[in-house]
Write a protein that binds this DNA or RNA. Structure first.
Lengths: 120, 120
DNA sequence: ATAACATATGAGTAAATATTCATATGAAAG
DNA sequence: CTTTCATATGAATATTTACTCATATGTTAT
């Protein structure tokens, strides 16, 4: 927990003091940056990325997802929960079957942006 | 390792078969999706996100980074190595001091995109 | 009601990873 | 060349996390 920008015994002296102070003042609250990291953490697993990636094409049910990705139903279900909790996917029920889809275009954009970087 | 899209004992039958098959065929190779997940994994740690975030403003040396983020020099150094290995930051030496900065605008764009999603 | 099927979930385990501690490297100053 | 300062790094540890197994929930059909 930080409560001051004051200099004390050599703090903030390596670079021009003003620059460091300015950067410090413009930093968003820790919680925001923590949330941002948490968001990326969700994208940072290959099973989840695969789920999100195929959902860019079409909605899919749990069983089909499992087969497409070649992982167990349990594993997919666990990861779908993570995606659900983070509001990256939504779902609708049709009888026994539950169809998952991307919850909005942000997800699509984030993945595309990442793809651009990877393809280099 | 998957070698066929063939149906065998109830595979790909839940949804319209063609849809699942089409999605399967359009999936990028596993390696690409794995790399994509790896990229996001790098962003998915609060120390690293903080480093990247402050580097959007200005280049900074290791010591200043440590003080700004309130973590030890060791920790910052370890994380800078991860960022370096993934080509998200670059650095220049000036005597004893090493200044780190973002390696390109992709990084900036990815973070901004994520921020948009978090701020909702 | 019971069986069959699709999905969800809790507990346990194994693997990944972020930090700390101690120490190494490398540059500049005396 | 020795000391000091800035940064890097190896090993050990603690925490997180993704998966498996077993089982639960909920829906439809008989």
């Amino acid at each position: 927990m930080r409560e001051s920008n004051e200099n004390q015994s050599g703090m903030f002296l390596t670079l021009c003091d003003d620059t460091v102070k300015r950067v410090y003042e413009q930093m968003p609250p820790d919680e925001i940056l923590y949330d941002l990291a948490e968001l990326y953490k969700v994208f940072g697993d290959s099973t989840r990325i695969k789920i999100l990636y195929v959902l860019m094409e079409t909605e899919l049910c749990v069983g089909d997802l499992a087969q497409l990705l070649g992982v167990s139903q349990n594993a997919v279900s666990h990861q779908l929960r993570v995606l659900k909790n983070n509001k990256l996917v939504k779902f609708r029920r049709e009888g026994k079957i539950i169809y998952y889809s991307l919850s909005d275009d942000h997800v699509r954009r984030i993945i595309s942006q990442g793809m651009d970087h990877v393809k280099e």
